[in-house]
Nucleic acid binder design. Sequence first.
DNA 1: ACCTGCCCGTGACACCTGTCATCGGCGGGT
DNA 2: ACCCGCCGATGACAGGTGTCACGGGCAGGT
Lengths: 201, 201
Amino acid sequence: MIRLLLADDQALVRGALAALLDLESDLEVVAQVGRGDEVVEAARASGAEVCLLDIEMPGLNGIDAAAAVRRELPGVRSLVVTTFGRPGYVRRAVEAGASGFVVKDTPARQLADAVRRVHAGLRVIDPDLAAESLVDGPSPLTGRERELLTYALDGSPVATIAARVHLSEGTVRNHLSAAIGKTGATTRSEAARIAQDRGWL
Amino acid sequence: MIRLLLADDQALVRGALAALLDLESDLEVVAQVGRGDEVVEAARASGAEVCLLDIEMPGLNGIDAAAAVRRELPGVRSLVVTTFGRPGYVRRAVEAGASGFVVKDTPARQLADAVRRVHAGLRVIDPDLAAESLVDGPSPLTGRERELLTYALDGSPVATIAARVHLSEGTVRNHLSAAIGKTGATTRSEAARIAQDRGWL
DNA sequence: ACCTGCCCGTGACACCTGTCATCGGCGGGT
DNA sequence: ACCCGCCGATGACAGGTGTCACGGGCAGGT
């Protein structure tokens, strides 16, 4: 019997996944949480062996949660399940110590198998995504560029961003200009979108 | 036995919801589709009585799919299930003839009840969202403003948008300026974000 | 010691954006 | 017939944006 923890912020999806996995005779959902920062505690308390983590979660995202599990509970394996198959996500998930990466587009019947393989110590990674994450390499962005791009995601004017990070407007424009160059974009909004699509944020 | 159709573009979520609802002894999932434009045909072929429709779908969104069901298959009821609880979505879903509106944050055990109520001819609408959709009223945007805002969502420069809709740059700026005024924003990106949050796009 | 990369800042320049005034055409309502 | 709202367009202007050149400071590696 494989003991599972589910982490997804959408209660309906979480409950539905629990129903799906509980149908398998060798799987047992022993914990459910809706926030990333509750994963480690719940996993410890429930004695979970595999954690199914969504990336988009309040408190702590699924990738950082996987890293926390790796650090606090070695022996417990993580399987990241996400809506968006962004190449950078795969890389970061693997670097965080996740044993698997599955997108929500995959057929439902394959999920249980993925859990079993992860529990057996194997890696489960979508082959298309793995290839993509190799071809476009790691993020070329510096720390500041990454930070400023996240603030530029919603199209905020430079003045607003500068005020938020306590920098000169000129400096912000220079960093963003560098980011625009590295992403091949022509606008900071476009650069932010590209960086997000690649999982660089 | 209530016959159900599930429409959601994420196979994993769709399958999980099917597992969840099939656990109920009085419910039966008789059809599953991943695109909005396959809903009517599948509902007809399977003899579904209630359609569970996600909004974000390729081909045809869940709201328009509900309208199609209403038109083609009167007697079949629709329950819209979505990630985003945008006020405008509720209004548009109800106007499209949907009998219910549920967000994916709701507890899993309430979904089956919602289905039963919709099947019984009752309306099921999240009370908070219903209130919100009343207070901020219908969309004040004109057709062009709405259209141009959707193109402005990703931060495209005015020139690009103008080329895409075959308009003068000045005209595009005028429409967007009007939209900015109506949304209370200061930037077209912000205006686009606000309009989307309210479900006006 | 030196170079390299990242960080922060300034100044200048061309270009893009948001706003306003003004014009004309079109359809719907009174 | 008239007014009104939506649509398309132009011109002008202030302010925001992207780019470049240049400066300095600071840590890490050779």
